[in-house]
């Protein structure tokens, strides 16, 4: 059982709900990492925890510390900003690396050539 700060009841309830929701979403993302059948599908899984999962936890943390210290404390925004910039970079690089490797090896996991592009006027 972990310790917890003494918040007013409404704040405690709000923070609890946000923390639990964030953890559940991160957990679903990790389950996806295990259950999805191939690498390119699995790339989609981590972005669950990194977007809404992290968002809920960070908003919970913001509310908790703002109420505790009696002033706006929103430094968690930095983590949110950092995550929104880094997650796409890592996932994109990984997907491209995997595509490159699969195409060099010609193992059939990735299409040899790009599919015909769709045009919408």
């Amino acid at each position: 059982m972990s310790e917890a700060p003494d918040l007013p009841l409404w704040a405690a309830l709000l923070v609890s709900v946000l923390v639990l929701l964030g953890a559940v979403i991160a957990l679903i993302g990790s389950i996806g990492l295990l259950r999805l059948p191939d690498f390119y599908s699995r790339v989609h899984a981590p972005s669950l925890g990194a977007t809404v999962g992290a968002g809920c936890l960070l908003v919970g943390s913001m509310i908790c510390f703002s109420v505790l210290q009696g002033r706006m404390l929103v430094h968690e925004l930095l983590i949110a900003l950092f995550l929104t910039i880094t997650t796409p970079v890592t996932l994109m690089l990984l997907a491209r690396a995997a595509l490159h490797r699969d195409r060099v090896e010609r193992n059939g996991d990735a299409p040899e050539r790009d599919p015909e592009p769709i045009d919408i006027a």
């Binding site: 990194a50 997650t87 994109m92 997907a95 595509l99 599919p115 592009p117």
Partner: peptide, 25 residues
């Protein structure tokens, strides 16, 4: 690229600037 990758379900894979085509998963 950030939008498409941050929304789970679409993944930006590569962009070909000479043809202006985008490969997505």
């Amino acid at each position: 690229a950030i939008i498409l990758t941050c929304t789970p379900g679409t993944q930006w894979v590569s962009y070909d600037p000479s043809r202006g085509t985008l490969l997505l998963h």
